[in-house]
Design a protein around this nucleic acid. Sequence first.
DNA 1: GAAAAGATTACCT
DNA 2: GGTAATCTTTTCC
Length: 188
Amino acid sequence: MARSSSGRPLGRAFFDRPTTRVARELLGAVLTVRAGGDVRSVELVEVEAYLAHDPASHAYRGPTRRNRSMFGPPGTLYVFRIHQVVCANLVTRPGEAVLLRAARPRRPAHANPSGPGRLCRVLGLTIADDGQRVGPRGRLSVTAPRPRPRPDLVLRSPRVGISRAVDRPLRFSLAGDRWVSRPRPRAT
DNA sequence: GAAAAGATTACCT
DNA sequence: GGTAATCTTTTCC
């Protein structure tokens, strides 16, 4: 599969749009985390949308101490802990977010970011990053896919690992990409 | 204050 | 394919 180069930095205007659309357009985007001289980056191949009035969403019952970042401005990072692992989301509109599920490694090339917890581990994201804003000057930056994935390669399927609203097709992934996590999505 | 559940992963058969 | 690990937040009594 072709490796993309890095496009323009995505900011508030990109994230302040309907969540499913942001999710779909994040496929192929490059995430970069800079810590001191260390640079790590991946290219997204799988995400999930969590919407308002969505029983599967952490924001469903309103703001709490844990999920308050989900109500921050567009482009806020929401990091939460599950079991021994952390997972990261990008907030779109208040109360809605895109879970970053899997990616193709870029730097380092041998990393394995296939899975929400592994993706965070590869990028070095921790709970301390919760609430940060992404941006070209920040620790975490996101750049537009280049080239854009072919629309016919974007798959929609049910989300993974949840127990409510299990049938909503809010998981977006790139068809046939080896880095998409399990279970493999079935084309619709 | 106690109990349950969880947007996962690694390792077992 | 099934299950244990492991621990914090949320929820319920």
